[in-house]
């Protein structure tokens, strides 16, 4: 296992941080968030989570101090347009489907998702998604009585 020389990388600016260091910073932010929130609860309820949080912080500091230097590790986190769109679509789907309903939202998002990443053949996407959802609806909801979230529509 090859670890980078910390002194060498600490001299560099933020943009040159190793990927492990960026992850460690995010983890420290998670620690701060959870630790701040823990004051909202009685101390006896959060004593174990706080104990875990201190271990978590210790390990994050170790990760920051001894980042792993590996040829496969990229020095930058690449945010492509497609990745951002994809993450936003996933979040939107999770938020919207309990409101609108599973089947309508899944149909809209599945077709949209496939169309965004492959601009041709929208009719094919509509047909495939519709057949899939009709099968799921009849097999699970009508035959096996496994209910999917229903909102304003279905």
């Amino acid at each position: 296992m090859a670890y980078a020389n910390p002194a060498k990388y600490l001299k560099k600016g933020g943009n040159d941080l190793l990927l492990d260091r960026k992850i460690a910073l995010v983890l420290m932010a998670v620690f701060l968030l959870f630790y701040a929130v823990s004051y909202m609860y009685p101390p006896e309820t959060v004593s174990f989570p706080r104990f875990l949080l201190w271990i978590f912080l210790g390990l994050s500091i170790l990760l920051f101090t001894f980042p792993r230097k590996h040829p496969d590790y990229s020095l930058k986190i690449v945010f492509s347009r497609e990745k951002v769109v994809s993450i936003l679509l996933l979040i939107a789907y999770a938020v919207i489907f309990p409101i609108i309903g599973f089947f309508t939202t899944t149909f809209a998002f599945a077709v949209l998702y496939m169309w965004i990443f492959n601009h041709s053949g929208i009719r094919q996407y509509i047909i495939v998604t519709a057949i899939y959802l009709i099968v799921v609806y009849f097999v699970f909801q009508k035959w096996l009585y496994v209910w999917f979230p229903e909102g304003l529509l279905m």
Binding site: D20, P49, L52, S60, L62, F66, R68
Partner: peptide, 14 residues
């Protein structure tokens, strides 16, 4: 990646 493994374990517990 031992540190990351341990962090993932503690995060799971959290």
């Amino acid at each position: 990646a031992v540190f990351k493994g341990l962090i993932a374990g503690v995060l799971g517990l959290l």
